[in-house]
Every structure is written in C-alpha cells, then in structure tokens.
C-alpha cells in the first residue's frame, strides 16, 4: 500500500513549521544566520536573505528537504494581490528519474512506495541530480553523497506519519495511503470549484508515473514553480540511443566505403604516397 502526502496549498499559511519539523526529525543542519556583526562597524548587517518574499532557502537542497514557496501575485495595475504559499518537497514519483538514473543501486523504493538514498551505497556520481525533473535531489560536499526527503522512512515504517505532516497546523500537509488521500483531494477540489476557484487543479495524478506526494493548486502549476509537463528523462532513452546508433552506423559505413579492399582498377589512386 503506497504511502504519500497530499499538500493542499489552499490552506497553507506559510508558517514553515514543516521546514523546522523536517530538520528536527532528520537532524539536518539549520540555515545560516540572517544577521551577523560587521567586523568594522560592529553593527548587525543582513546576510543570507533570498530577497524573494519570505522564502529563506530559495530551493530544495541537501539539508533543505522541505521548501515553503512564497508566491506574490499582482494584477496588472497592482490593485489586487494574492499571496500563495506552497510547501514543496520530493514527490516520490511513481516513475522516479533519480532512481532510474542511479548506477549503483543506492536509490531504492521501499515497500511503502517512498524513494530513498542508501547513504552507504551512494558514490556521489551526481547523475541523479540533473535526472530529477523537479530539481529535488542534491549533493552534499560534507558527506560526498546525495540527499533528499525520505518520506520520513524511519517514521513511516514504524507506523508514524511524516514529521512535516505531524507539525502542519492547518492540515495543509496530510500523510496517509495515496488512495485515501486522492479521495480527499478530489472532494476538496470539488468544494473549491463550487466556491468559484475555477483554475484549481490537482498536480500529480499523471505526472512522472503518478506522484505519491501530490498537490492542490489554485492556479496552473507553473505559478507554483512546478513544471507543467515533467518528462522523466529515461523515457527519452530509446530515442537518444537510436540516434546515437544511427551516428555510429554512419561512421561505420564511411569506414567500410573508405577502407575496404578495392578492385585493381580503383586501386591506382590508392597508391601509397611516396
């Protein structure tokens, strides 16, 4: 029975409790301080601000397995504004690009459907990093390996939910069986549509083989920084291989034509240069 999370961004308040809970449970390093004392003036100066609303990590990373996005939307004349919040993490794709790309078997899917990195197996080749269509998995110079959300692998295999879902004060992040969560998501989508949110949509039913961590957005996914049509890179492998083989055949045929033993008549211009 696949476990997953349903992230209902319509009730997210951007409190970042999920970011904190994730770091607490998984023992991840905290963010660098936002102020330090300037050595000359001895006054505090601001550092490590993203400059992008209240976003404090900017992206997912090796020690940032949760990232609350702050999306400021203004109308053309800036008379109306809407502030969206969306807590992003690894989606534990049904067809996971990172897992497909891993040459060592370090990235595995457990019986509960979550995708995790076995830290003792990973060699740090970094090929999974560009293979994730969502920009999730990240390299750590400290360990020389890659890291990402495990769906709280230790918790869920012991009957607990994920730390972020546990900490979420508005039930924006819900943990459970994917089938149950999908039913809840469909009901919530119905409700929002009836309230007039015509653009509301569920992100993650079909993308990348079905996402075990899926989202309800009030506007198109691109507004929330998610790719509209994520392509699992390995689905393009047959085409890329065929084109490469065609190139090899072309070179091989050129060699056959140029190097083959020719008849005596043609042999004349092939004389060894003296």
């Amino acid at each position: 029975m696949a476990k997953g999370m349903f992230v209902d961004t319509s009730v997210c308040i951007g409190c970042k409790a999920c970011q904190v809970a994730c770091k607490e449970w998984n023992g991840l390093q905290g963010e660098p301080a936002h102020f330090r004392n300037d050595p000359v003036s001895m006054r505090p100066v601001a550092v490590n601000f993203t400059g992008n609303s209240y976003d404090n990590t900017g992206a997912l990373g090796a020690t940032d397995w949760r990232h609350v996005r702050f999306i400021e939307r203004f109308s053309e004349d800036r008379s109306r504004a809407r502030w969206y919040f969306s807590s992003d993490s690894c989606k534990h794709c049904g067809d996971a690009g990172c897992l497909n790309a891993c040459p060592t078997g370090a990235i595995i899917r457990t019986g509960l459907g979550n995708v995790t990195v076995q830290q003792d197996v990973c060699i740090g080749c970094k090929y999974c990093i560009p293979s994730c269509p969502f920009g999730v998995i990240s390299f750590s110079e400290g360990t020389g390996t890659v890291h990402k959300c495990t769906l709280c692998n230790d918790r869920i295999h012991n009957g607990l939910g994920t730390a972020c879902a546990k900490a979420c004060p508005t039930n924006s992040i819900r943990y459970g069986d994917v089938a149950d969560l999908r039913r809840a998501a469909n009901a919530r989508l119905e409700r929002l549509k009836s309230l007039g949110y015509g653009q509301a949509n569920i992100y993650g039913y079909d993308e990348a083989g079905g996402l075990n961590v899926f989202y309800l957005f009030l506007e198109p996914p691109a507004v929330y920084g998610q790719p509209e049509r994520p392509v699992v890179p390995q689905r393009r492998l047959p085409g890329a291989s065929a084109a490469t083989i065609a190139g090899a055949v072309a070179v091989g045929v050129a060699a056959l034509v140029c190097f083959r033993e020719r008849g005596q008549a043609e042999g004349k211009d092939e004389e060894v240069d003296k």
């Binding site: 560009p130 390995q234 492998l237 890329a240």
Partner: peptide, 19 residues
Amino acid sequence: VTARPLWAATDPLVGALFV
C-alpha cells in the same frame, strides 16, 4: 537523458555528435 534544459533540448543528437 537528463532534465537540465540545454541537455534535454539537444536530445537526441549529442550521442551521434560525440560519435
């Protein structure tokens, strides 16, 4: 066979180019 924009956009020709 990655999702990086330039590399994915050049699919499927870079293999043949390198050959």
